[in-house]
């Protein structure tokens, strides 16, 4: 399944980058996260609890950040396993400055689903991923507000 989109964030790329690279803030941004454990410089072990219609369950697996080009781009790789099936994602993310104090975050990648997620959930995955993406950016904006708050 292709995953692509963009979102305008009211902060400079360096600031967005800092939040995304920080384990503590990352834990607040990724939707449904209930456990995040750093296992390397840019790799994590995660537990996600997702409750969206037929795609509900606990996912465990890895999150890794690759091809880091601070503060412009990186690739997020995720391998997540659950009773419902597995999800494997590789998503290229770019941060492009817009004006003085805005960033356009673009993402483009592929999510491979297997097991029941593929055979039962495929039809609704588009909707589920849209919801998760919205949550992600909304969480990111909340984090930015926190850091800019006096």
């Amino acid at each position: 399944m292709q995953l692509a989109g963009k979102h305008l964030i009211h902060a400079a790329p360096a600031k967005v980058w800092a939040i995304l690279m920080n384990k503590e803030t990352l834990a607040h941004i990724v939707p449904g996260i209930s456990g995040l454990e750093q296992t390397g410089d840019h790799s994590f072990k995660s537990t996600l609890d997702i409750k969206l219609g037929p795609v509900s369950g606990s996912f465990t697996g890895n999150l890794q950040l690759h091809d880091l080009q601070e503060p412009n781009a990186f690739t997020l790789k995720a391998q997540q396993n659950s009773k419902m099936g597995n999800a494997n994602a590789a998503i290229a993310i770019s941060l492009t400055p817009v004006g003085d104090n805005d960033t356009e975050v673009m993402f483009n990648g592929d999510v491979k689903l297997s097991g029941m997620l593929a055979s039962l959930g495929n039809r609704v995955m588009g909707g589920v991923s849209n919801t998760l993406t919205k949550q992600f950016f909304s969480n990111l904006e909340k984090e930015l507000e926190k850091t800019t708050a006096p």
């Binding site: 689903l113 297997s114 097991g115 593929a118 055979s119 039962l120 495929n122 039809r123």
Partner: peptide, 9 residues
Amino acid sequence: QLTNASYMD
């Protein structure tokens, strides 16, 4: 993956 493996699909 068989993507229509239920009576929903």
